[in-house]
Amino acid sequence: MSGYRLPLILIAGWLAAAPGVSVAQTAVRPQPLKSGIEFTGPEVRALQEDEFANPAMLWITRGAALWQQPVGPAQQSCASCHGDVATMKGVATHYPQIDKGSARLINLEGRIQQCREVRQQTAPLRYESEDLLALTALVRMQSRGMPLAIEIDPQNRRHFERGRELYYRRVGQMNLSCANCHQDNWGKRLGPETISQGQGNPYPIYRLEWQTMGSLHRRLRACLSGVRAEMLPYGAPEYLDLELYLAWRSGDLPIETPGVRR
């Protein structure tokens, strides 16, 4: 797992300069909301915006082929039931959501897996596999330009609160919370990078450092590894709760899938 490593000295010095401990008990959005693309520099931005050169488009091409591929005993493809992938427009704006059947919080990856297992009756895809990334990116790209439409209601509130709590909890050897970096210090430099607001709007992304596509959960793992905290498995309930909190926190930022990052 190629996470970045933050130099301890650097971080210690930087934190000393950081404003007091953040133990916000209420959920707050950064003001004004900014997509991470605004912090990446012109080359990465140009790459993301070039429909052809954006390397993530290879996964979109792969996803489009998978969408048509018949699988399982009934030899049904995603297209057999859903028709053109354009019918998925707007779908991603409602995830993560509570799955009615299981009463669990699931994200878009989870929903796609469910269709594979229950409707196509075939083996699920590995969470960070090329194929699941490709299908997730393809479906999410259909909502490009649309903000998420997440409402916090009695069904998902427990997950939202837990996500918020995780967001403000200090963890790892460096004893930092997500908020320490992405809420209190966005726009500041940390080593070679400028800390963004930590928005999930471009995911799955092609990250140049990874030389491949990665999910939001891979990014969360990279951040946790950066502060030398325990990494949880992909799709862990804690990550889903965080994903819900991030979704709420992104306000009206439009989806940018498939994004490119350094």
């Binding site: 050169a53 290879l58 792969r62 491949t212």
Partner: peptide, 9 residues
């Protein structure tokens, strides 16, 4: 002409 290929290299 532009060509992009998915490959780990």
């Amino acid at each position: 002409i532009r060509v992009a290929i998915q490959h780990p290299m």
